[in-house]
Each structure stands twice: as structure tokens, then as C-alpha cells.
């Protein structure tokens, strides 16, 4: 018998980690100990907290780390505020995976430039860990990441300790606002990117961030000579179903929940500018 595609699976939050003043990372496992579902980096899932509601979040864990899903969630609305109040042991609902995910096969063998801002490290982190866990399959990895202040760096341990230790991998951090505990770069991500000026040859870039950051990063990348086919980004729209039926996340004839959230700049240029 067919099943209801809007019906979540019951899952347990097994760990809640505070990342920043307004971001927490939730580790989620199936209530019955099995795997919830297989997924690719960049895919999303609908997370339900009962009786508050449901929303789509990108999966921040990498499928190479088996047995759990992780979501890094920023407190912005009713649901996320309620999620920030739960503790390990809370049962929630999860359904998915949704969306296309990052083109890991296309990226294989290439140098990768990740550009992220704020909470949008979440989808990138899934892909970064995927690539670093399959280190031999990918070329040099550079990660440019910016946050409002040093307090707002998510996944601090990976950014500061784990990733820089991996061979042929560079992490370049910047913050918008100077503070006493920060001796790194201060400035917005697009300017920092232009300052670092990584050469486009043999490189694919993957950018996730707030719309305003994406806009200027895309402009900078174009200026630096990156081809639209080698510029990958993700879009965010309000979603209710995740399965292309509720009718609100479309950009032109593409539903972001099904055809996205990952698009190349070349694909975006074919779509109406409504995001």
C-alpha cells in the first residue's frame, strides 16, 4: 500500500550542541535505531517539532558519517525558537531526503573553493566533510567563511582545528565586526574573496550564504574569471511540503524543493530573478 508522503518518521534528538548565541546543532537518530534514510550532501529534510510545526532544513552532517543526521539551526522564527528549547532525548519527526544535493561526481578530481557566510555553512559542511572523508577523490580544498563576529562562527572546532590539519586544505576566516578575541581578517566575505583572489583554473566554487552575500560573491567570482558552470550555489525559499506540490517554492518552472536547492550559476541565469 502506498504511504502518505507527508508523514514523518519518529526520530530522537540524541545531542544538542550550542554553536553560537543563536545557532545550535542537533544530532538526530531514528527512534528504532535504524538509519532514517540515505542522503547526499546538500539535501534537506523536513523537521517537525510537535505541536509547533515543520520546516525544511539542510542536513549538515555528511553521509560518510553513518548512523545520524545533524542539523544546524539558527533561531529565527516560531519553530526554530521552540527547537532551541528542546533537550537531548526529545522525539521529533523527520521526513526526507529532499532536493538534488551537490553534484559530487562533477566535483570529483577538481580543486574546490567553498565560500560560506553565517548559518549557511550548514549545507557546505556536509559537502566539505564528504570531500575530506574521500580526500583522494578531490584536489585542493579552500574554505572561505565569514560570520558577523568571532562569536558567530559555527562549527568552530572544525573550522579552527580539524579542517586546517587535513592535507592540501586551507581555511580562511573573516568576521564583519572586530573584537578583542579576534586576530584574523575583518571584512565582508566578497571583499575577502577578492583579496585572496584564488585563481579559477581547475576550480569549482560552492557558495552558500545570505542572499546579499551570494549576490556580491557571484559578482566577484565573475570578475575573477570563474565560469557560470563552475559556480555552484544554493537557494532558499519557504517550503511546506518538500515534494513539489504545495506550490510556493518555485522559481519559474523549477520547484526549489525538487530541482534545487543546488543550482549552478549557469542554471540560475536561465531562471527568472525571483529569489
Amino acid at each position: 500500500m502506498a504511504s502518505n508522503p507527508l508523514l514523518p518518521q519518529v526520530a530522537v534528538v540524541t545531542d544538542v550542541r550550542r554553536e553560537t548565541p543563536d545557532v545550535k546543532t542537533f544530532r538526530v537518530e531514528a527512534a528504532d535505531g535504524r538509519e532514517l534514510f540515505a542522503y547526499r550532501p546538500g539535501q534537506c529534510a523536513m523537521v517537525s517539532l510537535f505541536p509547533v510545526g515543520e520546516a525544511l532544513f539542510s542536513i549538515t552532517s555528511s553521509p560518510t558519517r553513518i548512523g545520524f543526521l545533524e542539523f544546524s539551526i539558527k533561531e529565527t522564527g516560531v519553530l526554530t525558537r521552540a527547537l532551541h528549547e528542546i533537550e537531548a532525548g526529545t522525539e521529533i519527526g523527520v521526513r526526507g531526503p529532499y532536493g538534488n544535493g551537490f553534484p559530487v561526481d562533477f566535483l570529483r578530481g577538481k580543486d574546490l573553493l567553498f565560500i560560506g557566510g553565517g548559518i549557511a555553512l550548514a549545507p557546505l559542511r556536509s559537502l566539505i566533510n564528504y570531500c575530506l572523508d574521500n580526500r583522494d577523490d578531490y584536489g585542493r580544498v579552500d574554505i572561505i567563511y565569514g560570520a558577523r563576529s568571532s562569536r558567530d562562527l559555527v562549527q568552530r572546532e572544525e573550522l579552527l582545528v580539524n579542517w586546517p590539519r587535513i592535507r592540501n586544505t586551507g581555511v580562511h576566516l573573516t568576521v564583519d565586526v572586530r573584537s578583542d578575541d579576534w586576530d584574523g581578517n575583518v571584512g565582508f566575505v566578497p571583499a575577502f574573496l577578492e583579496q585572496l583572489n584564488p585563481a579559477p583554473e581547475g576550480k569549482v566554487t560552492v557558495t552558500c550564504g545570505p542572499p546579499i552575500m551570494i549576490k556580491f560573491v557571484l559578482q566577484s567570482l565573475a570578475k575573477m574569471g570563474y565560469q557560470p558552470e563552475d559556480v555552484i550555489t544554493t537557494l532558499e525559499m519557504k517550503m511546506k511540503c518538500g515534494i513539489g506540490k504545495c506550490g510556493r517554492c518555485n522559481i519559474g518552472d523549477k520547484y526549489v524543493c525538487k530541482s534545487g536547492p543546488v543550482f549552478t550559476l549557469a542554471e540560475l541565469q536561465q531562471l527568472p530573478n525571483e529569489y
Binding site: 504511504s3 502518505n4 507527508l6 508523514l7 514523518p8 519518529v10 527512534a31 510537535f50 505541536p51 522525539e91 521529533i92 519527526g93
Partner: peptide, 16 residues
């Protein structure tokens, strides 16, 4: 589309 109990244990019931 879905009924639920969320006291001790979360129980989800498919209404479809």
C-alpha cells in the same frame, strides 16, 4: 494529514 500524541512518547498516525 497526520494525527499525533506527544506526551510520554511521540506517536504519529497517518490520517490519509
Amino acid at each position: 494529514v497526520l494525527k499525533y500524541e506527544f506526551g510520554e512518547n511521540l506517536q504519529l498516525l497517518d490520517a490519509s
